[in-house]
Nucleic acid binder design. Structure first.
Lengths: 183, 183
DNA sequence: GTCTATAAGATGATAGAC
DNA sequence: GTCTATCATCTTATAGAC
């Protein structure tokens, strides 16, 4: 039996990734856990604090999932494939888009600190890919391709979710890799 | 002086594209227009009706903007560039992401009819690009590239908005076209 | 840690006057 | 068309008991 804090984070992440930050309330999360909303406030004084904790946890998890896959990958293409596979697992494993994809869209309506933490996730993503791709091209070229790849993966999650068809994510992601292979 | 309905649609679209469907209220829209929320209900009985009207108007505007640019474009590449330019103008002209990009992310939390109308926007987008690209490749290949292109444009809007840097959209979009040129 | 109780305000929506 | 008035409900958040 997981403790309440962990259950709370899981439930909140799941709800926000499905419907967005403003569509999720402390009451609803409390109901899901069989507690009262005042108890949710015990863990997170404000909703913003919950959001910040969720994004921090999400970032940690993302890179902790990526690291061993990267270490095991043989060659540039395999490392980029590893990166894409973390995205794919996030989508397919939860039937939800990326937490930061959702919050990134809602950015302008979020508490500034939360929006900044989300932006940091994207910067880290782009940096990781840029560093990886820089092995075989100039850094400027690598950054363009890195930005495009993160944009494609995020957009493909949103599209696949709206159209209720994961094949769409795979089509877009494979197209990404196909281009890299022909390099 | 535009009439109230048009002002209402403009204000609502602007607010939703900035902060999301659930972060926008009838009261807030009424305040922006200097009227009362009961008057907003005169135009749209439910919030869902407003959402539906917004997406319909957005779809119309998108394709009415695209058509003359398509007609004027010379060759496949120019036609795809025309498509991308409608996206770019939507982002840069309003300092906001695509209405359907925002609602697509929030899809699972929206009234089903609204989510369906948003999905239809994406299907139309993919169909237009698939038909265009089919001139020079198989339809299966064209569809993969079409899906990827819409995903990239949508994701790039979200990224550019989160990172507050339009250069990011341009990098991703140009990368899209570069690939097409080398075909 | 979790509860009850409560506050102050927002929200979608309606009835009916002007 | 726009208003006032009102509703039931939800929301974030706090104080203080157990």
């Amino acid at each position: 039996m997981t403790d309440t804090l962990e259950q709370l984070l899981d439930t909140a992440e799941s709800a926000i990734r499905l419907r967005g930050y403003h569509a999720v309330s402390f009451r609803e999360l409390a109901d899901d856990l069989g507690i009262k909303s005042a108890s949710v406030h015990y863990y997170f004084r404000q909703k913003e604090d919950l959001g910040l904790a969720l994004v921090e946890r999400y970032k940690d998890r993302f890179f902790k999932t990526l690291e061993p896959r990267e270490a095991q990958a043989d060659g540039l293409l395999a490392r980029v494939e590893a990166f894409c596979s973390v995205y794919r697992d996030a989508l397919v494993g939860s039937d939800r888009i990326c937490l930061c994809g959702m919050l990134g869209a809602e950015s302008a309506g979020l508490p500034p600190a939360l929006a900044a933490s989300v932006a940091d996730f994207f910067e880290s993503n782009v940096k990781w890919l840029t560093d990886t791709l820089s092995e075989v091209m100039t850094e400027a070229e690598a950054q363009c391709k890195a930005v495009r790849m993160v944009a494609t993966l995020q957009g493909a999650m949103m599209l696949a979710s709206s159209l209720k068809n994961y094949g769409i994510f795979d089509d877009a992601a494979e197209e990404n890799l196909r281009e890299l292979k022909s390099l």
